[in-house]
Each structure stands twice: as structure tokens, then as C-alpha cells.
Write a protein that binds this DNA or RNA. Structure first.
Lengths: 233, 233
DNA sequence: ATTATCTATAGATCTATAGATAATGC
DNA sequence: ATTATCTATAGATCTATAGATAATGC
């Protein structure tokens, strides 16, 4: 079995990298299924085919391992979305449109989960759980995603110059909800729709999400404009 | 201290009910903060001021306790929303509007969390965590909420007779996301908006949510109508 | 005479550490 | 000579149960 193509001898750096990836992949899957507290180090070790004590060699403790899992892909997706927003703006002289900004932001992310393989889908499910964890979850999101989110919100302000800042932030609140619900892939819509829709059909969701949300923004901003008119006249 | 107004002697049924409520309240708060796996029976017992073994007297195991916590309020909110939808339809001869249906459904629920006290807000946070749990979470939602959700979806179909069923289900998928994100109250929007918005300001959210989502539905249904026209002409 | 609550404890599991062994690195 | 991995185990914690005690119920 010692074919020339696959040398059994690996450099230590390679070995380290390989094992770490195995561990992080296993942890990512399990944490995505049951959350931080629903997974034991032993669970991760078994799935990763390493001994539990090795986890302590690589990570200070369980939370540090969890943070490493989250951080591994957080930077990648944040950067992709940031670049997509820049590219969207680079190609135009007109102010941005709400749907354009949302497409750059959301579709770019959905593409990643559609084409990035199982790892990215597991990460998505993990992200959904983190997003709903009040104690430490929001903090993780703040740390990794604030810059790109604020960049997007800045562009939405340009797209909706007459809309109060408050409404735009609430609109973003709704955007997160829709995205996070999608990333969770709980299978609930499958049951409700009796199989007509499947919660892992990101392609169907991509076809609707940005437009749905763009119309939503118009709705609450129109509302505000109307209210202001009512008060002024 | 044996004033006539507050007899120390309680009937067993009263005692049972009181203790159960203490236990369920404590469990509700803790599960809402850290999820099913992040809470131990000892945690619940300490907060409820009872001995851990008493939890085993009242519940078969931890999951049964969790289910009892969830079930206690699930029926109440489902029924309220169902009644609100009926009342909305009772008062009209025209077909329903999307925003009308969503207001009956969502505003009724938000009112409950706004006026129902701390217990209901803790339950909301718990619900948000359950909604993102792939293994057992979706199942709990199916059990308790399918009837009222399907009733609402039926009304949305009446409001949007030309919209494909598929789009309406996806629209509902987005509705859940927005509601669940709101119920979680993670404080993330507070940080992002630098205090301009607060995630526990359900009143501000109520003023925007139904309209935002109603416009979203119009958006994806218009889209579909346009697409059909394109294909037909 | 039944029901509610507490005491005591078994048995399993979980995290974490110390120290041994087996690889790669120079 | 350093780094990666495993063995063995301590100490804490967690769920669950058996059985005692203290209330209410007739």
C-alpha cells in the first residue's frame, strides 16, 4: 500500500493541520446539531477518531474549542460578503438599491452554503444556534460580523435616504431573522408544506429572500414617510 | 404571623400546584438562557428552592420536564392566535388582506409577550432556542403549533389567490424567522445600533413587523406573477 | 392513608491533568 | 529535541433511585 503517490510520512505541521481539521469538523457537526452544552468532549473525540485528551492538547477547554470552530469559517464568510458589497458598489454611479445591497449580502452567503459542501452547511446550523444563545451567542456575532453588517447597513441608508435610521436597524433585525431561520434547516417547513418545500433547498430560498426583504424595507419606510406627512400637514 | 388573610395551611392540590409552578418558572428561565443541555436539574432545583429529587417526583426525566415547560404556555399562545384569526375573519365579507392576517397572528402574540410578564418573556426566549434545535426542536413546534400555523397559511392563500402555494410557504418560513429572532432578545441590535434600538422593545417591533412581512409577501408574489407572464407571453 | 418533600447514595459521565510513548526534526 | 498522541486517573458533577420523614386527607 506504500504507493509513491501517497507518502505515509507526513510533516508535523501537516499532521497537526490534518488532525485539527478532523477535530474541528467533528465538533462543528455536533455543535450544530446539539449546541455548545449538548456535546461532550468525548463525543467530539469519538467522531474525530482521536483520544479525548488530545482535545486538551489543542484547546484550553471546551469553550475555546467551540470558539475555534466558529472563528474558522466566520472570517471567510464575513470577508466574502464584504467583498461582494464592495464589488456591487464599484460597478455603479447611481446610489445602491435595497434589493441590490441585500442580494450582494445574502445571495453571496447562500452561495457559500450551497456550494461549500457539508462543512459549510454544518457551520450554518451552528451559527443559527449561536444566534439564539443570549449569554455568549450575540457576543460571538458581534466579534466576527459587526464590520460587514455595519457596512451593509451604511449602504441601506444610502439606498433609503429618507428612511429613519431606526427603521433601517429594525429592518436589519428582520433580515438576520430570515437568514438565521434558513441556516438552521430544521425541516419544519418540509412537514408544514407536506414536502412541497424543503428547508435545505437554499436555491429556492435564494430566489425569494432578497426580494422579500427588499419589499419589507420599502414597506416600513413608506409607512414612516406617510406618518411624517400626516404629522406635517 | 398567622393572620386570617393568609392561612399557612394549604390543601395538597394547592401545594402541588404552587411547587410545580415554582419549578416550571425556574426551569423556563434557565432553559431560555442556556437551552435544554445547558441546564442541570440541580440548577433548576436551586432556583426553585426545592430539592433535586423532587424534580424526579414530578417528572420522569429532564426532557419530560422540558416538554412540560414548553407545553404549559404553548397551548395558550396557539389558542390566542387562532381566536385572533377567527375574529379577524368574522368581521369582514371581503377576502382577508396579507397584512390583516399577519397582524392578527403576530401582533396578538407580541401583545402577550409585552403584557404577560416576565414568565412569558422567558418562554419566548426558550421558544427561540427550541426553534433552532434541529433534532427535537422542530418536532415540538410541529406538535403544538401546526394547526394554528396552517390556519394562517390558509388565510394567506385567500389573500393571495394568484400566488403559488410554494411561495406562500416560503413566505411563512420568513415570517417564523422574523418572529423567532424577535423572541430571542439577544441584545445584538442594541450593540449594532449603539442603543438606538433595543431588542426587548417589542412595541417598536410590533409597529413594523407585520407591515414589513406583508410587503415581503407582495414582493415574491409579484415576482412570480411577472415570471408567469413572461413565460406565457 | 395518601401525598409531598427530604436524606443519602449509587453509578455513570464529564472535564482536566500528569506522565508515558511514539513519532518527526535537525 | 521537540511535538503529537495515548494511558491512566483524579475530582467534580450529574441523573436517578431507594427509603425516611413530614405534612394533608378522611
Amino acid at each position: 500500500m506504500t504507493t509513491k503517490g501517497k507518502p505515509l510520512r507526513r510533516t508535523k505541521a501537516e499532521q497537526r493541520e490534518g488532525t485539527l481539521a478532523q477535530i474541528l469538523d467533528a465538533a462543528e457537526y455536533l455543535f450544530g446539531q446539539r449546541g455548545l452544552y449538548g456535546v461532550t468532549l468525548k463525543d467530539v473525540a469519538s467522531l474525530a477518531n482521536v483520544h479525548t485528551s488530545l482535545l486538551h492538547y489543542y484547546f484550553a477547554d471546551k469553550k475555546a474549542m467551540f470558539d475555534a470552530v466558529f472563528a474558522r469559517r466566520a472570517g471567510v464568510t464575513a470577508e466574502r460578503r464584504s467583498v461582494a458589497l464592495d464589488e456591487y458598489m464599484a460597478g455603479r454611479t447611481d446610489p445602491p438599491t435595497v434589493e441590490g445591497v441585500l442580494r450582494a449580502y445574502l445571495d453571496t452567503d447562500l452561495d457559500l452554503y450551497m456550494t461549500g459542501g457539508e462543512g459549510w452547511r454544518n457551520y450554518a446550523a451552528l451559527g443559527a444556534q449561536v444566534a439564539m444563545a443570549p449569554e455568549w451567542g450575540a457576543k460571538l456575532f458581534d466579534t466576527h460580523f459587526d464590520p460587514v453588517v455595519l457596512k451593509m447597513i451604511g449602504l441601506l441608508k444610502q439606498a433609503l435616504p429618507d428612511c429613519p435610521e431606526e427603521d433601517i436597524f429594525w429592518g436589519y433585525h428582520f433580515v438576520t431573522g430570515v437568514l438565521v431561520q434558513t441556516l438552521a434547516r430544521t425541516g419544519r417547513i418540509d412537514v408544514l408544506s407536506d414536502g412541497l418545500c424543503r428547508s435545505d433547498d437554499f436555491s429556492a430560498i435564494k430566489a425569494r429572500m432578497a426580494r422579500f426583504l427588499a419589499f419589507g424595507f420599502e414597506g416600513i419606510c413608506q409607512d414612516r414617510a406617510a406618518e411624517r406627512n400626516r404629522l406635517t400637514n
